[in-house]
Amino acid sequence: MSVVTLEIDGKVCTGVSGETVFDVAWNNGVKIPRLCHIGGLPNIGACRLCLVEVEGQKKLLPACITPVQEGMVVRTWSEKLIAHRRLIVELLFAERNHVCSVCVVNRNCELQDLAVELGLDHIRLRYQFPKLVADTSHERFGLDHNRCVLCTRCVRVCDEVEGAHTWDVSRRGALSQIIADLGEPWGESDTCTSCGKCVQVCPTGALFEKGKAVSEMRKDRGFLKYIVTAREKGQWIR
């Protein structure tokens, strides 16, 4: 492993070859917005919020899957990037029924944080108001499709870390939905181990613990890192 030096937002940063632009930026204090990426899970480059400008590249590149290269010059914030990110978050708010005032993760929500960070104070797009239901058949947890942004963190954590692969995505496009097993109610799933990993990695209030009222749910952001460190290094440390 060799050390790589690159420039991110005018700041000289060092990383190790094989690391992604996203990780090196975060380790050097440059926070790039993201929704589908979460440390400890394989990256899919789907949310497009971490797109950055790289000198010499015509296209915008997703930081979460772009490996660092020696001498790379990266810009993570520009007017264009902010406009794109704001519109992407705006699209999410218009896509499903995100009502913060009645949500269990109000003030502890990654989508809400993104909107605040990007200065998104109103929605110009037409709300789609899809008719979606909440699955509360599980004993301890609930799934509210209205708040889902389809980042598939739950699908990946269940498959890659827990090894159960209870979650998957059904249908396509705007009709995509997270399903348990082959579309059964969550509570009747044969494969679910009720480990709750999916609930902790979910960026919004789509997956939540039962019995929590508005703003009461706090997701454990260090949870996944704790498990991955334990598994990879055998150290049970927080």
């Binding site: 992407i88 699209l91 218009a94 496009g173 995509s176």
Partner: peptide
């Protein structure tokens, strides 16, 4: 025909 994986295509084409 959007697969729904990335947000711009999934939600953008709808709008």
């Amino acid at each position: 025909e959007s697969c729904g994986k990335c947000i711009p295509c999934r939600a953008g084409t709808v709008q």
